[in-house]
Design a protein around this nucleic acid. Sequence first.
DNA 1: CTCTTGATAGCACGACTGTGCTAGCTTGGC
DNA 2: GCCAAGCTAGCACAGTCGTGCTATCAAGAG
Lengths: 195, 195
Amino acid sequence: MDAEQRRRELTEAVWRVIRRDGVQAASVRAVAREAGTSMGALRHWFATQDELLHVAMTRVVERARSRAEAAAAAGGPLVPRLLRVLEEALPLDDERRAEAEVWLALTARALVDPALAELRDRSAGELHGFCTEVVRVLVAEGVARADLDVDLEGERLYAVVDGLAVHALTRPSVLPPGRARTVLAAHLATLVDSS
Amino acid sequence: MDAEQRRRELTEAVWRVIRRDGVQAASVRAVAREAGTSMGALRHWFATQDELLHVAMTRVVERARSRAEAAAAAGGPLVPRLLRVLEEALPLDDERRAEAEVWLALTARALVDPALAELRDRSAGELHGFCTEVVRVLVAEGVARADLDVDLEGERLYAVVDGLAVHALTRPSVLPPGRARTVLAAHLATLVDSS
DNA sequence: CTCTTGATAGCACGACTGTGCTAGCTTGGC
DNA sequence: GCCAAGCTAGCACAGTCGTGCTATCAAGAG
């Protein structure tokens, strides 16, 4: 069996435990049980508990990024395409919801775990940077007003995206996927429309 | 000593532990040690571990609400006053930052803790409702365009507020208090200005 | 004085934790 | 055949965990 795939399997077992029982339940034993293997086997791949969480978080980021890149590379008009990329950060289906749950759990833990904090900062910087880039492109392409404060609008867009992510995640009955997409699209439209 | 004050003291010990070491470290023993008392004394006031966390979360909500009500009751022009109320949900000083840290930690845990989830839903509903109310008032007072979709703009404002809260909390060097206020004010301005 | 009630202290139990460690198994190279 | 490396299994240790429980202490009521 391929080593990379084995690590992926185990990482997804970590996810399942975190989603079902929370980060605090993601013990070496619980994850090994979930993966149907032994403590020893698990520790062969991930030496410590911290590494387990770190890898789980890394994989959330990687998956979201690769999906975002795919969406960015797709064809079609600019604005809907950018919208589709931003939507990759929202919990709109089971896959993204799983990622978002793990993301929130680890974001909270990152407040007191320096190793996770470093990882969170890097990935947050990426999304933040992309949001600013979206605004910059819209202005450069002439579809948004030229007098926009790019940095400020990037910050605001980033807040809308993560705010919607948290709300769609924690109160899905109030903010179902379709509604979240509508609100995000509306926000993007305000950057474009009012010329 | 007053019973209510004793409970408050112990609750604040819970906060300190959560802020310093995370929710997972908020054990009965750790909190008792932090409060300078014994396990038995602590359990006299809070029968279970869950109750400890529940009360900690309740108190975050209560404090933020009472500050918000004070800000709402203050005089001055409408828009800056509403802005000041919304800012009570942002980690702009040590007090609010402490609350936000506890809020994020418990919001994450609420994903797998039904009792906390119920509390979170109630308080989230309050802030969400207030955001919608802000938009409604702005429209009613004629300072915002009459053709605004009140519910959608309420949802968007709520996302901006919580998004900024998370970002100011997790990456304070990138989004310091002053900057967070600026972005929030700018968002409110977009609801008012473009007539 | 006694009696009661509220508050505090902390022991004991069984369960769970991360990690160090050894022992066994499996597979491929020679 | 044999050896080595990669992998798996799980025991052992020293902790921490939540909670049930009893014992002690302080103070007010009668």
